[in-house]
């Protein structure tokens, strides 16, 4: 269950929020973003500095998102999600229901708007200031509420303190990411193997969050499993060094990162980037929450 203000108990509310929302504090730093040997959209590699931030240890789960849908003050709009197979939340005549055994899988079939609406709702649960305007999709990143990871934050957090190419090392390990050809020790826990959410009809499917080992920052399934919506509007990189970049000011396409259970090895790198329309809802796309570190 997602924590509410009533469940805050310690003398340090910031620690409470981090624990209850399963956040990891990522120390700021400077790194080389992009890859001159990668796909065109990954070029040019350029120096980026990011401040410290909080990042979700896991992608938002079906259980967490379902609580948002059910909440009286969520103002949930059906167009934010799709409920067609394969899916983890089903729409019935007058309500919604979690597909059996799907609670700990990552929430998918949710648009960028549905993701940031969740962030705003979660902010309100903790008395924090919402970041996003759901009509314009503009954001006030100075607010203390929850948001999506900025693209630079995502890549920096994925690489870990040593900025590994694959998040866990510089050589691909087929057992450490849920991707198209995943055949590791947890393959029987994939949704298809468990016949969860209609994935039994397909060969490829996600694992529950927290199944595979975390990276050196303690973040789970950054590479593979499901793509993750990022805050940024897509645009080509600039070659100049950047400080806390936050994407282009206009545009219909938002960045997604990480690759998914449908992807081949070439997409499962920390620098790989793609983008989709902000209203797209796909079975391979989920999201992870983030927050500013308060000074």
């Amino acid at each position: 269950m997602v924590a509410t203000q009533q469940t805050l108990t310690s003398t340090n509310p910031l620690e409470d929020i981090a624990a209850l929302c399963r956040l990891v504090r990522i120390p700021g730093g400077t790194f080389l973003m992009g890859d001159d040997d990668g796909f065109p959209q990954e070029r040019p590699a350029h120096e980026v500095q990011v401040d410290s931030f909080w990042a979700g240890k896991y992608c938002v789960t079906v259980r967490e998102y379902f609580e948002f849908i059910q909440s009286a003050d969520s103002n949930f709009q059906e167009l934010w999600c799709d409920f067609v197979d394969p899916c983890f939340i089903r729409k019935r005549v007058s309500d919604y229901v979690i597909t059996e055994d799907a609670a700990e899988f990552p929430m998918v079939q949710v648009s960028f708007v549905g993701a940031v609406a969740y962030c705003n709702w979660l902010s309100r649960q903790f008395g924090l200031a919402p970041v996003y305007d759901l009509d314009s999709l503009e954001a006030d990143l100075s607010q203390n509420g929850f948001r999506l990871l900025k693209e630079a934050e995502w890549e920096y957090a994925c690489g870990g303190p040593r900025q590994w190419k694959y998040g866990y090392g510089d050589s691909f390990r087929p057992d450490l990411s849920c991707y198209r050809k995943y055949a590791g020790e947890f393959k029987q826990q994939r949704a298809a193997s468990l016949h969860v959410g209609g994935f039994g009809l397909y060969d490829y499917s996600p694992l529950p969050v927290g199944t595979l080992p975390p990276n050196d920052y303690g973040l789970y399934e950054m590479i593979g499993n499901v793509n993750e919506w990022c805050h940024d509007r897509y645009g080509p990189y600039d070659k100049q060094a950047q400080v806390n970049p936050q994407g282009k000011p206009t545009g219909s396409f938002r960045v997604i990162r990480g690759g998914s259970f449908l992807d081949e090895v070439d997409k499962l790198r920390k620098t790989y980037r793609h983008a989709i329309h902000y209203s797209s809802k796909c079975t391979i796309d989920g999201f992870r929450i983030a927050r500013n570190v308060e000074s």
Partner: peptide, 9 residues
């Protein structure tokens, strides 16, 4: 697909 996104952007 990413080429199309780059072009549309």
């Amino acid at each position: 697909s990413m080429g199309i996104i780059r072009l549309l952007t």
